[in-house]
Simulated assay, not measured.
Amino acid sequence: MFVRDYMTTSPITIGPGVPILDALEVMRKNKIRHLPVVDRGRLVGIVTERDLLTVSPSPATTLSIFELNYLLSKMEVKEVMKTNPITVAPDCTIEKAALLMREHRIGCLPVMEGDNLVGIITQNDILDALIRIFGLRRAGTRLVLEAVDRVGALADILATVRKHQINVVGVACREKEDQRVQIMLRLSTVDPQALIKDLEEQGFEIKSVS
């Protein structure tokens, strides 16, 4: 799974000299929370809805509505945008994009191909990718089992699944501290009982079936 498979192509952009109230209106009209800031075709920053709302006045302010509108009308995107945003290429993996967002605590990544902005990928896009990877919208069974963390454990499990002629929709593994591993399988069957019995006979502990 790569960024190019889930990014929004031809993203809506905004110029650095646009008033912040206009930028907020663009976000609300298009139901988005991130705007790449482009100056003469070059990406120069990123602005988020939170950035814009942070500089908006508190309801407790003593300024009049006229003073507020005047001050806000003078503030431009370039005053609140984040410069030198972290970017990724279209062939970046979804896993790496997710890790970058988590490490830097950001909600989106502009996607660059050379010097050209070709897309944007957000946290929601990452979640959509994970939903697809795990096959969460496909009918079937979610099976969680536990095994000794050894070489070949997953291969043995998948060989057993194959013996029962069941298709594997998704796989995820989580290491535990006691030299064991939990393995989640999404299976294209609604009747996994024969498979479960076979796995238990091989020493695998079934933790959850849903």
Results as ranks from 00 to 15, higher is better:
I131R: 02
V77E: 09
E79A: 15
K96S: 14
N116D: 07
I133M: 10
V118Y: 06
R142M: 08
F134A: 09
N116H: 07
I94W: 04
D125L: 07
T87P: 06
R150A: 14
A89E: 13
V148T: 09
G140S: 09
T122P: 09
R132C: 08
E79L: 04
E146A: 02
A89Y: 10
S73Q: 12
K78P: 01
L130N: 01
T93H: 07
L72F: 09
Y70G: 10
D115F: 08
D149Q: 13
I133R: 09
R132N: 15
L130G: 00
D128A: 12
A129V: 13
R138S: 13
A139F: 06
T83S: 11
I121R: 00
M81W: 02
G135H: 04
I120G: 02
P85W: 05
G107W: 03
I94M: 07
V88I: 13
Q123D: 10
M75I: 12
R105A: 14
V118P: 01
K78C: 11
V88A: 04
A89D: 11
E79T: 15
I121L: 13
I121A: 05
L143F: 14
D125V: 01
L72N: 00
A147G: 10
P90D: 12
K96E: 14
A89T: 15
E95Y: 12
L72T: 06
A98C: 09
I120N: 01
I121E: 05
V88F: 11
K82N: 12
V80L: 12
T93L: 11
D149C: 05
L72D: 05
G119M: 00
M112T: 00
A97Q: 02
K74L: 14
N84E: 11
I121G: 06
T141Y: 02
R137S: 13
N84H: 13
I106K: 03
I131N: 07
L99Y: 14
L143W: 09
N116A: 09
V148G: 09
Y70W: 00
A147N: 04
D128C: 01
V111S: 00
I131S: 08
A147K: 10
R137Y: 03
V144F: 08
A147P: 06
L109T: 08
E103N: 11
M112P: 07
S73Y: 06
V148P: 10
G107C: 07
M112Y: 02
L130I: 14
L117C: 03
C108N: 05
V77P: 00
F134Y: 10
M101F: 15
E146K: 14
M75L: 11
L71K: 12
R138V: 04
F134N: 06
Q123K: 10
A97D: 06
L145T: 07
G119H: 03
V80A: 10
I86E: 04
P110K: 08
I94Y: 02
A129Y: 01
A89R: 12
A139Q: 10
I106L: 04
G114L: 07
L72S: 02
R138H: 04
P85H: 07
I131Y: 12
I126P: 08
V80E: 08
D125H: 00
L109M: 04
G107E: 05
P85E: 01
N116P: 00
V144H: 04
C92V: 15
F134R: 05
I133D: 05
L136G: 03
C92T: 15
L145E: 06
L72G: 01
N84P: 08
I126N: 01
A98R: 12
N116Q: 07
I121V: 15
A98S: 15
